[in-house]
C-alpha cells in the first residue's frame, strides 16, 4: 500500500474522532456553565483556550464555537475535520467502501453553512448529538462494510491515536482549571469539574457503574489513565493502537515505534494517581500530552515515512543528458 493512502486512512480516522471529541467538550462545558450559572464567566471557558490552541480575543462561548466549530482553518475545528475527512474520502474511493463515501459525502453536504447562531437557535445539545452520532455511525459503517485488512487497520489506528491525544488534552483542561483556581481543590466546583471531565470523555456513566456515584479524584484519574476496559482511557487507546497497526508497516523504524509504545505504557503504569492530585496536575497533563504527541510522531514516521530521504546527488554518469546538438 502506498504510504500516502495509508496516511490518508489514518488521518481520516483521526479527523472523525477529533470532531466528535471537540463537540462533546463544548457541549459539556456549556452544560456545566449553565449549572454553575456562569455562562458569561470567562473562567469557565479559559481552560479550553490553551488546551485547544485557541488565541484569546473575546473570551467566551461564542468565540470558542466560532473557532472550534465554524472556522474552516483551525486544526481542531469540527467543520475543518469533517471537510478534510470527506476530501480524503474522495481520493480514497478505491480503498474504502461505497457506503462510507456516500455517508461521509451526505454528512458533509448537510453541514455546509454552519454558524454559531444556527447552533444556538436549534440547540447545542441537538447539534452535539447530531455530530456525535454521525461520527459513531461512520465508524460503525466502516466496521461493517470494509474488509478488515490494512486499510481498515489504519483507519482504526488513527481513531485510537487521536483519542489518546484527546484524552490527554481533556485531562489538561482540568489541569488548567486547577491552575487558574488553585484553592478550588475539594470544593463543589472542583467535584463539578472532575465530573465534567468524565462527561467530556463519555465516561461519567461508565465510571458510576464501575465505582459508585462519589467523584473521587484519585479514582477518576485511575479510570481515565489506566482502566483496561474503558474505551477512552489512555491505556486502552494505546493498546488498541498497538493491536491495529498493520504488520507490514512495521518496517525499519519499528524498534523506535515499539520503544515509544512501551515507554508511554510504562509511564502510565508508574503514575501515582494519589500523589498526582496533590501535585501539579497541569504540569503532569502537559507532559502527558507531549508524550502522546511523541508517540504519534514516531508512529507516523515508522508507517508513512519509513523510506530514507534522497539527499546526495543520486544520478549516474550513464543517464546524463546529451549536449545540445
Amino acid at each position: 500500500m502506498l504510504s500516502r493512502i495509508g496516511e490518508a486512512l489514518y488521518g481520516m480516522g483521526r479527523d472523525i474522532e477529533r470532531a466528535q471529541n471537540v463537540v462533546r467538550v463544548l457541549e459539556v462545558t456549556h452544560k456545566m456553565a449553565l449549572v454553575r450559572q456562569s455562562l458569561e464567566d470567562p473562567l469557565t471557558w479559559l481552560p479550553l483556550y490553551s488546551s485547544f490552541d485557541v488565541a484569546i480575543d473575546e473570551p467566551g462561548e461564542a468565540e470558542l464555537y466560532e473557532r472550534l466549530v465554524v472556522d474552516p482553518q483551525h486544526p481542531y475545528s469540527v467543520s475543518r475535520c469533517l471537510r478534510e475527512a470527506r476530501e480524503k474520502g474522495r481520493s480514497l474511493r478505491d480503498h474504502i467502501s461505497e457506503e462510507m463515501w456516500a455517508y461521509l459525502n451526505r454528512a458533509y453536504l448537510g453541514l455546509l453553512g454552519l454558524s454559531f447562531d444556527a447552533i444556538r437557535r436549534d440547540g447545542r445539545s441537538e447539534f452535539s448529538f447530531r455530530i456525535e452520532t454521525l461520527c459513531d455511525a461512520f465508524h460503525g459503517i466502516a466496521d461493517d462494510t470494509m474488509m478488515h485488512g490494512s486499510e481498515w487497520r489504519f483507519l482504526r489506528t488513527g481513531k485510537y491515536m487521536e483519542r489518546a491525544e484527546m484524552t490527554a488534552r481533556i485531562l489538561h483542561v482540568k489541569g488548567q482549571s486547577l491552575a487558574v483556581m488553585p484553592d478550588a481543590a475539594g470544593r463543589p466546583i472542583d467535584v463539578h469539574q472532575w465530573q465534567a471531565m468524565l462527561r467530556s470523555l463519555a465516561g461519567f456513566e461508565p465510571y458510576r457503574r464501575w465505582y459508585d456515584a462519589r467523584i473521587l479524584p484519585g479514582r477518576v484519574l485511575e479510570f481515565v489513565l489506566r482502566h483496561p476496559d474503558f474505551p477512552r482511557s489512555l491505556g486502552y487507546c494505546i493498546r488498541r493502537v498497538d493491536e491495529h497497526l498493520p504488520e507490514e508497516s512495521r518496517g525499519p523504524k519499528q524498534a523506535e515505534l515499539r520503544e515509544a509504545l512501551g515507554g508511554l505504557r510504562r509511564h502510565l503504569d508508574a503514575t501515582d494517581v494519589d500523589s498526582l492530585i496533590r501535585r501539579d496536575l497541569s504540569a503532569y497533563s502537559e507532559d502527558l500530552m507531549s508524550r502522546v504527541g511523541d508517540l504519534s510522531s514516531a508512529l507516523e514516521t515508522a508507517c508513512f515515512r519509513n523510506f530514507y530521504r534522497v539527499t546526495a546527488q543520486s544520478m549516474s554518469e550513464q543517464s546524463r543528458f546529451p549536449v545540445n546538438q
Binding site: M1, L2, S3, R4, G6, D94, S150, P246, E248, S249, G251, P252, C303, F304, R305, N306, F307, Y308, V310, S314, M315, S316, Q318, S319
Partner: peptide, 30 residues
C-alpha cells in the same frame, strides 16, 4: 484504469528517484 488493471494509482509525491531507479513510497518501504 488503475483499479481495472489492479495496479497502484500514484501521484508525483508518492515517487522518488534514487540512483536512476524509480521507487514508490509504500508502508513497507520503497
Amino acid at each position: 484504469l488503475a483499479a481495472e488493471m489492479g495496479v497502484d494509482l500514484v501521484e508525483g509525491q508518492d515517487l522518488l528517484v534514487d540512483q536512476d531507479v524509480l521507487y514508490a513510497k509504500t508502508i513497507s518501504g520503497l
